[in-house]
Design a protein around this nucleic acid. Structure first.
Length: 853
DNA sequence: CATGTGTGGTAGC
DNA sequence: ATCGCTACCACACATG
């Protein structure tokens, strides 16, 4: 189901009014407002059953086609400079989801001389069908047609000539063929250009941090699905913190015949200069090389004559070794009560002391585990820190590394103050878990030469308030606990409440490398790809989200366009914005629309974008609650749909709806009035597809509508009628019709369509030298009026219009001053207006002022 | 004071 | 060349 069809339905509801229905039918809402919910459903059913039957399928479509043709002609006429009529003689139909989207393709086809067919009614007229993939049924249906991929359109325009459609024919076994192509070309081309649709995939395949995060998530979910014994607070515990020594480097070295991990300085990385070192062995560390350092810096640390050995990642082998590691832990003769996954190569194993008949031999456990892992992995060493608190197990691990183990309990350590102090003296402050660069520098700002934990303890002298003032309330008390060898509440959760600790509460991705875009359209496409990736995961988890956040990295004003790191993000400002969806969803359409709209709110110039992050914040389990739809039916905004029009749609269109509902996993209860359910859900879907900002506006309008229809005082009736008319007027604007009431004029035109045409002519004429400042002011003034009278959706349409056009012209005019001025104008003057009228009370007030006269 | 938002920090190699 | 992820907590501040 696409926007065009949605619009078609709603437009046909408008047409119904134009066809001169009686006042009663014209506005069912007036009657509906006074009825109870049950009576309402009854009423709707009657309404739809009593609807006119003479509205045939052919009439409906012919009417639509004529209107569409007119619109296309207008668009074409609106082009100042005629584009080459590349698609002259072609009548093109678009099937299903495509990239670029249907609207963009439509625009391209029409502006380059082609005809666009909205419906496949008259198949004979259609010369080409555009699709990216087809369900089996459609394959049969289209088997005698020229079915092409969307690239046929875009590349024909790029090359300014009609390319042979055969080269873009959609192979029925598209998936297989593209797979073959990928396999064949994988070693040669890695999509390093973020505009490439495969960029995300190749990037993730090669990103160590992505792998680490993904592995961790997998391990956590596996942990939750397996059994464990939960200790109670107060239980005596033996905690083994087990961790591979320079894991990636060891694995890489094992796969490298010619190198010796005990002799050569080895690093794992992709490149040779600004590439991050994922892991380095202890030989390299001897020279001061560290994980995370750039290769160029590492090289500079080596004395002359010593060569750095750079090895590539071997993610597959890493997974294999890790699998062995966790298997050894699981199969060990002493059953661990908990095997807590920390990372791909790191786990915390817990024995509840009273669960074993005899006191366990911790020394033996450490030795046996280490040798078993070494044997089974073919030469990987792990180190083990053992204690009875998490923090001390971790600190002991630090001492144990590399290739050793260390066992000391809290009692042993803290009993003797002198021993405890000398122990603390061995550690840096950021050796404490959860304490990093930033907190250390906060502490240092209070006292410069804090180097080890002993100094930290002595300086703060158990003065909690001072510490808390410096680093924050929780962090302060956490540090103080650590300085007594105890775990704070938050870290203890891992042991005592593992279910909640390891449960997933959010889902996100983030890409801060290789991001270089020119236009909003390209970014939209990228956001689509990301949203698709995330939604797929969300659906696999059987969850929905009700709040999403978009975070963006924008190049700092004074940062160079290209940072020192190749395709890195460089110095950036992070901007983020979250939006609530009202109803939890896992639908790509809703989510992607919302994200793209949110991106515009953040106001980041496309060329300055350096990073993108998308988060699903509030996750809920999908429930097949039978009542869900019942509740939904009670939402007020659903009651204004003209059901008679819906009911008069051709039956195959209605079938499409129901299929679509099924596809989207909307469960319909066996309602006695399924038509009503479909219809009600249907408008709701339309609403959900709108960005929240606009959705709220519309909802609010409808809410007001309902409120007004409930008013019974007769002296207000006339006033109310006017109000309703004006509200309908707002709705008409949403659909792009001309205003029926108090039209706002621009250049003496008041019809939206005409204004669009003028703006487009103006746009095309000024692409090179740029629009005149005074004209821009006039236009902005018009936009402000739209904004003030609550016609934000119209502004959105202008934004889309301009941005689609910019994209279309970017090849030819991208470098022109005029083009760039328009781009700036769109970003700085048009899009911000979409965010106006944010508060509903304003909307109410404005409606009263504007229309109550 | 309770709640929500945007920002920032940390961990794993 | 190069693959600077991602979940989660804590904080500062705004809002009412």
């Amino acid at each position: 189901m696409d926007d065009d069809k949605l619009l078609a339905i709603l437009e046909s509801s408008q047409e119904g009014e134009e066809r001169g229905l009686g006042p009663e039918e014209r506005d069912p809402a007036e009657t509906l407002g006074r009825l109870s919910d049950d009576a309402l459903i009854e009423y709707m059913t009657n309404l739809s059953q009593g609807a006119r039957k003479d509205f045939t399928r052919e009439e409906y479509f012919r009417d639509k086609e004529i209107k569409q043709r007119e619109r296309d002609e207008a668009t074409r006429a609106g082009l100042g400079r005629a584009n080459a009529p590349i698609f002259a003689g072609c009548t093109i139909y678009i099937n299903g989801y495509t990239k670029p989207g249907r609207l963009q393709l439509h625009e391209m086809i029409v502006s380059y001389g082609g005809k666009f067919q909205h419906y496949l009614l008259a198949k004979k007229k259609v010369t080409h069908i555009v699709a990216t993939n087809l369900p089996l049924k459609k394959r049969l249906e289209f088997r005698n047609y020229r079915v092409v991929r969307p690239e046929w359109i875009t590349e024909s325009i790029e090359q300014q000539k009609l390319l042979p459609w055969q080269d873009y024919a959609l192979s029925w076994d598209q998936e297989q063929r593209s797979l073959q192509l990928k396999v064949a070309s994988a070693p040669v081309s890695s999509a390093v250009d973020c505009k490439d649709p495969n960029f995300l995939k190749t990037f993730f395949e090669n990103s160590r941090l992505h792998h680490l995060s993904n592995w961790k998530a997998d391990l956590r979910s596996r942990f939750l699905s397996e059994g464990f014994n939960k200790p109670s607070p107060g239980d005596a515990l033996s905690i083994f913190h087990i961790d591979f020594d320079c894991f990636f480097a060891t694995v890489a070295a094992l796969g490298c015949e010619s190198c010796d991990i005990n002799r050569d300085p080895i690093v794992v990385c992709h490149g040779s200069k600004s590439s991050d070192i994922a892991s380095c062995n202890y030989v390299a560390r001897k020279y001061g090389i560290r994980n995370g350092m750039w290769v160029s810096r590492a090289k500079s640390l080596l004395p002359p004559g010593v060569e750095l050995v750079s090895l590539p990642y071997n993610f597959k082998e890493i997974e294999e070794k890790s699998k062995i590691f966790y298997t050894v832990l699981k199969e060990y003769k002493i059953k661990f009560d908990l095997i807590l996954p920390i990372s791909i190569d790191e786990a915390v194993c817990v024995v509840i002391d009273h669960h074993t008949p005899h006191p366990i031999d911790r020394d033996e456990i450490c030795r046996e585990l280490r040798s078993e892992i070494w044997k089974r992995t073919g030469g990987c060493t792990v180190s083990i820190g053992c204690s009875n608190t998490l923090v001390l197990a971790r600190l002991n691990l630090k001492i144990a590394k590399p290739n050793g183990y260390h066992i000391l309990t809290q009692q042993q350590l803290v009993e003797n103050e002198a021993d405890w102090h000398s122990y603390l003296g061995k550690f840096q402050i950021d050796d404490l878990p959860g304490i990093g660069y930033s907190i250390v520098s906060k502490l240092r700002s209070l006292r410069q030469h804090l180097n080890n934990l002993l100094q930290l303890k002595q300086y703060f002298h158990n003065s909690l308030p001072l510490l808390q003032k410096c680093v924050g309330k929780k962090t302060g008390s956490k540090i103080l606990m650590y300085l007594h060898g105890k775990d704070d509440e938050e870290s203890s959760r891992m042991i005592f409440e593992p279910e909640s600790f390891f449960a997933r509460k959010s889902l996100s991705i983030e890409i801060n490398w290789g991001i270089r875009f020119d236009t909003v359209q390209e970014i939209d496409n990228f956001i689509d790809t990301c949203a698709d990736y995330l939604v797929q995961k969300l659906q696999e988890m059987n969850k929905r989200t009700s709040q999403i956040t978009l975070k963006v990295l924008r190049r700092c004003a004074d940062a160079p366009i290209e940072p020192p790191k190749y395709l890195g993000c460089g110095e950036c400002d992070a901007l983020s914005h979250n939006c609530r969806l009202g109803i939890p969803t896992s639908e790509l359409g809703v989510i992607a629309t919302e994200l793209k709209s949110t991106f515009r709110l953040l106001g980041c110039p496309p060329k300055d974008l350096r990073g993108v992050s998308i988060q699903f914040n509030k996750l809920i389990e999908v429930s097949y609650d039978q009542n869900e739809n019942q509740q939904r039916l009670k939402l007020p905004f659903q009651k204004t749909l003209n059901f008679d029009v819906f009911d008069n749609l051709p039956s195959d269109v209605k079938n499409d709806f129901s299929k679509e509902l099924k596809r989207r996993n909307i469960v319909l209860t066996s309602s006695p009035r399924p038509k009503t359910s479909y219809a009600a859900t249907y408008e709701e879907k339309f609403m959900e597809e709108l960005p929240t900002q606009i959705r709220n506006e519309v909802k609010n309008d409808l809410r007001i509508n309902r409120k007004i229809t409930r008013t019974k005082l007769s002296e207000l009736r006339e006033q109310n009628r006017k109000k309703k008319e004006s509200i309908r007027n707002v709705r008409a604007h949403l659909l792009g019709h001309e205003s029926l009431f108090e039209p706002i004029k621009f250049q003496k035109e008041s019809r939206f369509k005409d204004i669009c045409r003028i703006v487009m002519e103006w746009f095309d004429a000024t692409l090179i030298e740029g629009p005149h400042e005074k004209d821009l002011l006039l236009f902005e003034n018009y936009l402000d009026k739209l904004s003030d009278s609550n016609r934000v959706p119209l502004i959105l349409r202008f934004s889309k219009l301009i941005s689609v056009r910019l994209n279309l012209k970017s090849n030819q005019y991208g470098q022109e001053a005029g083009f760039q001025e328009w781009e700036q104008f769109l970003l700085k003057n048009v899009i911000p207006k979409l965010n106006k009228n944010k508060h509903t009370f304003q909307t109410v007030r404005k409606l009263d002022i504007d229309f109550d006269i």
